[in-house]
Nucleic acid binder design. Sequence first.
DNA 1: CCAAAAGTGTTTCACGTACACCCATGC
DNA 2: GCATGGGTGTACGTGAAACACTTTTGG
Lengths: 229, 229
Amino acid sequence: MAHTYEFPRPALTVDCVVFGLDDEDLKVLLIERDIPPYEGKWALPGGFVRVGEDLEAAARRELQEEAGVSKVYLEQLYSYGAPKRDPREHVVTVAYYALVKLSDHQVRASTDARSVAWFSVDDLPKLAFDHDKIQRAAHDRLRGKVRYQPIGFELLPDKFTLRQLQHLYETVLDRELDKRNFRKKILGMDLLVDLNEVETDVAHRAARLYRFDKKKYQRLEKKGFNFEI
Amino acid sequence: MAHTYEFPRPALTVDCVVFGLDDEDLKVLLIERDIPPYEGKWALPGGFVRVGEDLEAAARRELQEEAGVSKVYLEQLYSYGAPKRDPREHVVTVAYYALVKLSDHQVRASTDARSVAWFSVDDLPKLAFDHDKIQRAAHDRLRGKVRYQPIGFELLPDKFTLRQLQHLYETVLDRELDKRNFRKKILGMDLLVDLNEVETDVAHRAARLYRFDKKKYQRLEKKGFNFEI
DNA sequence: CCAAAAGTGTTTCACGTACACCCATGC
DNA sequence: GCATGGGTGTACGTGAAACACTTTTGG
């Protein structure tokens, strides 16, 4: 079935940069393309926006279909529309980035035949289209935003240690932080709930587990409180 | 001439929130629509993206065509794609915001028949489509960004007084600033060139004129300098 | 000479930063 | 008992914020 318009239109897609964090480093989820162009190359998950579909809904649908990822933090990044960014025709893409709790999202095969894998942001293959540029922009945005908004918690399990939290910031910001100053600052905000539990299966003194109090943060935010690391 | 595609596509537009500053307040440039939908209503300048045209180029073209505005600071804001945001069909828009030097851009009639006018951001008419929402987002972005990037100078003439500069920040941030602290901070950055000229035609002591040293800022920025008000 | 805005320093306080040692636990 | 990371306090310096008077100019 064909669709006809009075004037030609660019095609419209969404693409997602999905970040996850493990003990080593920050990772990005990529899919291997099984059709031209860039067949066999790694690319960001994404696809065409359907008529009548909201942009964010399209991004969530593609994440689910291509990578089995759902219920994640998702934020619009930027729109890219250089005429030649897709060799087939003029395709404008609205890019999003997502933060997932790797512990909840085991690296699982996609629902279709394509392979899906996590790559370290420091060791990415060459990506299809202008996806390198989009990935870098997402990484920059994450680095900038993580300091002023409590989005980092989206990368950790619900229960986490201060060590894990500090490691998160050190990884994303790519610099070392002072342990005492970090703890003083983060505990001083009074936004972490001490769960009175400790981690298990560690070969040393077990650390206390905390939970981020999102409700409290939202209340404070309305009153002018500014999160900052 | 008709254009046919295998799958239906949303239409794609760009819209621009153009800010200007005068002695009283922050202003937004609007155009009066002369065709349905929302005929006779005020709206943001904008229009359809052509195939083969870059998004920013489309925004600049529409600004020129609809409002006679050119060579302005322009930055992508956000993309809006709610299916019902345009009553005709699914139209996705990439929104931009622009900062213009009102002194250089006299409020002039548009090149076509529509009327164009500046409105105070505090006293806007009801806008067509979801343009209210877009305008608010642009205003929020401007408020947030002006403190960390030297974009405020785009709203002032090339030669300006410290009074004008402070007034700009007070207007955009919507709070009063201490004169001595402001001057100390801004002059301390050493990014303003003292032109050894003074303003004219004022009924009191004339203030010195300064120019923002953009080149110097760009050099410092690369070395890790952070602008901040 | 009066009105109006330009221009100028100091003190205080909060916060960021640097820094080192003892403690608890598993093996 | 030893290796490993958990957990804690203080001193210092920088920078933000509060604050008032004199100077210049035009009318």
